[in-house]
Nucleic acid binder design. Structure first.
Lengths: 212, 212
DNA sequence: GAGATGTAGATATTTTTATATCCATATAAT
DNA sequence: ATTATATGGATATAAAAATATCTACATCTC
């Protein structure tokens, strides 16, 4: 029995469902509710109750046998599991339309992310503030990453620029990249890349339309 | 042996991978290449060659036994499967930051989507053009949907407004909704909703960071 | 207090998806 | 021509995920 026995390898799908639970639980918590059951969560999220039960079980959310799950405790369990209970300092590279949209999304504070800087190469963007976040020139990446101790990069540059920026980020010691460019990034082992591909969702929608 | 035997029920994951193949194939096609193998695609996309082989097999992409897959034919097969070989007229509701970013994304033309109208309620947005697309008031939804024979809705409104707009869209006969609001939409059977949840990807990234 | 009810917990089963293995064959090198 | 090689095709295996089933128990109703 090792210290690593805790690692039950929670499935990716489970992880992707957690934010959905969180949203509903936040809502209910705001109304002063204290307990919620899998079946109630199922009604709200349209996810089968058995799946919810297993997901919450997997991350060790505290529950009461008959009464369901404690809302406050479940929120804490999810936040803790995702590391959303304390803020990671992040920055954004590529302050174009999408970048600006992300900078304007206030919800990240609830998601463990605090975007404290933005970078771009366009002269008309550099030096401005977008939604309260200063835009630096990309040339300053290294110094500011070190200075502000930034950990997570949000990449919203055009596809052709993505790999070049990534190489710079890796050289700066960044270990986590949230990539919105439609490019598969090559990174050394130990660097986590989360690919956000808008086309995948559209493909799903279109395929569903065609077969229907 | 029915006529429906063709329906091999292609997996969602396969569908979500198709756009990745497409991007690489477009690129190679642009260079005048004619043949590509699973292993080559695997190198470029970092997807295991066996998966690629099965995916392309599943949608019936034409191939040559030894030489690999015909790039042109594979592109056609994917485009045809996804219905991306002819444009669907779409519109966008919610011309905020994210909406504007999507309107500025020219790539949709390659993805079977042509956004020909936008809607919003803010007086300062209504009447403007964003990236060449006119912004109408949401009150005009019904008439313009019918007038322009629009089929697909892209929903980029704030969460609280999403369900209300959805009800209107359903009443207008819209059958496909691409939803970027972090809300699970309730729709009648027969209406396809594709949920785009940015928090899921972030959760994946954070969980990956924590367990590493 | 007794029983009905709905819940989490644990386990088992099924389904889906990914991965591996072997084979026939077209191509390229010799 | 001959051989080596890399590929798609087909099948089999493994892994992952979803779903079902059963049990024990806390709460509620009467």
């Amino acid at each position: 029995m090792s210290l690593f026995s805790k690692k039950k390898s929670i499935s990716v799908q489970t992880i992707r469902r957690l934010p959905q639970y969180l949203r509903v639980l936040y809502d209910w918590h705001g109304y002063g509710r204290e307990l919620a059951s899998s079946t109630e969560l199922a009604q709200e999220t349209q996810i089968p109750p058995i799946v919810i039960k297993k997901d919450l079980q997997a991350i060790g959310a505290p529950s009461k046998m008959r009464a369901g799950f404690k809302i406050k405790g479940t929120i804490s369990a999810i936040e803790n599991f995702l590391g959303w209970d304390n803020l990671n300092k992040a920055f954004l590279v590529g302050a174009g339309h999408l970048g600006a949209a992300l900078l304007g999304f206030s919800g990240f504070k609830n998601h463990g992310l605090e975007i404290v800087a933005a970078f771009d190469t366009h002269p008309e963007r550099v030096g401005n503030e977008i939604h309260g976040v200063h835009v630096y020139h990309t040339a300053q990446l290294k110094s500011i990453i070190e200075d502000k101790k930034l950990k997570i990069a949000v990449l919203t540059v055009p596809g052709p620029a993505a790999q070049g920026i990534t190489d710079t980020l890796v050289a700066c010691g960044i270990k986590a990249i949230w990539n919105f460019a439609p490019v598969k990034l090559a990174v050394p082992k130990g660097v986590v890349v989360q690919q956000e591909d808008i086309a995948s969702g559209l493909a799903e929608l279109c395929a569903c339309l065609k077969t229907k």
